[in-house]
Computed example of a mutant assay.
Amino acid sequence: MFTGLVETIGTVLEYKSLDTSETGGNGVSITIGDCSSILGDVHLGDSISTNGVCLTVVEFDEARTQFKVGVAPETLRRTDLGDLGEGSKVNLERAVTSEVRLGGHVVQGHVDTIATITNRQADGNAITFTFKLRETENINYIVEKGFIAVDGTSLTVTHVDYDTFEFSIMMVSYTQGKVIMPLKPVGGTVNIEVDLTGKLIAKQIDVNLASQIGNPDSALARLVDRLVEEKVAKALGK
Score class of each variant (00 low, 15 high):
residue 33 G to T: 01
residue 21 S to H: 10
residue 15 Y to E: 04
residue 46 D to K: 12
residue 52 G to D: 01
residue 23 T to S: 10
residue 15 Y to A: 04
residue 70 G to I: 06
residue 57 V to R: 02
residue 41 D to V: 13
residue 63 A to P: 13
residue 69 V to Y: 00
residue 30 I to C: 00
residue 16 K to V: 03
residue 61 D to P: 03
residue 55 L to W: 05
residue 29 S to I: 05
residue 65 T to E: 03
residue 42 V to M: 10
residue 70 G to E: 07
residue 14 E to G: 03
residue 21 S to K: 06
residue 14 E to H: 14
residue 18 L to N: 11
residue 15 Y to L: 03
residue 15 Y to D: 07
residue 35 C to F: 10
residue 39 L to S: 00
residue 40 G to V: 09
residue 46 D to I: 02
residue 65 T to H: 07
residue 51 N to H: 09
residue 23 T to W: 01
residue 37 S to E: 15
residue 63 A to M: 15
residue 48 I to E: 00
residue 28 V to T: 09
residue 36 S to M: 11
residue 44 L to G: 11
residue 19 D to G: 14
residue 38 I to Y: 12
residue 69 V to I: 14
residue 44 L to F: 12
residue 38 I to R: 05
residue 29 S to D: 02
residue 28 V to P: 01
residue 33 G to W: 03
residue 34 D to H: 06
residue 62 E to D: 15
residue 29 S to K: 08
residue 59 E to I: 05
residue 24 G to S: 11
residue 42 V to D: 12
residue 21 S to D: 15
residue 39 L to Q: 02
residue 52 G to Q: 01
residue 62 E to A: 04
residue 18 L to Y: 07
residue 31 T to F: 07
residue 64 R to S: 11
residue 28 V to D: 01
residue 48 I to R: 01
residue 28 V to Q: 03
residue 39 L to R: 01
residue 65 T to S: 08
residue 63 A to H: 11
residue 68 K to N: 00
residue 57 V to S: 03
residue 22 E to S: 12
residue 59 E to C: 04
residue 26 N to G: 11
residue 66 Q to S: 04
residue 35 C to T: 05
residue 64 R to V: 14
residue 63 A to I: 13
residue 57 V to K: 03
residue 55 L to N: 12
residue 60 F to C: 08
residue 15 Y to S: 04
residue 36 S to D: 14
residue 54 C to F: 08
residue 53 V to N: 05
residue 45 G to E: 05
residue 27 G to C: 09
residue 39 L to K: 02
residue 16 K to F: 04
residue 29 S to M: 08
residue 40 G to H: 01
residue 43 H to D: 14
residue 56 T to I: 03
residue 70 G to P: 11
